[in-house]
Simulated assay, not measured.
Amino acid sequence: MKLSLHRVFILIAALFFALATGMTAAQAATTINPAAAPTGTHLQTGSIGCSVNPTTELVTCSGFELAGVGNSNATATLTATYTATVQCRNHGGQIVEVKSQVTTAPTSTGSLSPKNGRLTVPELTSGPVPTAEDFIAKATCPNGNWTKELLGNTITLSSFTYTLHFAGFTGDYITITG
Rank of each mutant, 00 (worst) to 15 (best):
A25D: 01
G63C: 06
Q27R: 12
P38V: 02
T39H: 07
P142Q: 00
T163K: 12
V129D: 05
G152V: 03
C61P: 03
T60S: 14
S108C: 07
P114E: 02
C141M: 02
H165Y: 02
L150M: 04
T109L: 03
N116T: 00
A14S: 11
G46M: 03
R7C: 04
N90E: 08
A167E: 09
A132N: 13
A84C: 01
N145Q: 10
E57L: 13
D134N: 14
T31F: 05
R118E: 14
T125V: 02
L19V: 12
S158V: 08
T156H: 14
V52L: 13
L15S: 07
T55M: 13
A18K: 09
T120V: 11
A20S: 13
A28P: 11
T103F: 08
F16A: 12
I48P: 06
A13V: 05
G22F: 07
G92V: 10
F166D: 00
A167S: 13
G110Y: 09
R7Q: 15
T170Y: 07
T131M: 04
A29E: 14
V96L: 08
T131W: 08
S158K: 14
T81H: 09
A76D: 08
P114Q: 08
Q94L: 14
Q27P: 00
L124M: 07
A84T: 06
E123L: 10
A36C: 09
I95C: 03
F160I: 05
N145M: 12
R89V: 15
V121I: 04
M1A: 13
S113P: 04
S158Q: 15
T161E: 14
K99H: 11
N71K: 08
I12F: 14
T45V: 05
A132R: 14
T60E: 08
T31I: 14
E57Y: 10
T60G: 07
R7K: 14
N116G: 09
R118Y: 11
T163N: 07
V69P: 02
T77I: 03
A35F: 09
L78H: 03
N90G: 12
L11Y: 12
M1H: 14
L157Q: 09
T45D: 11
F17G: 05
P38H: 10
T79V: 15
S4D: 10
Y82H: 01
S51T: 15
T60A: 11
D134A: 13
T103I: 09
S111Y: 08
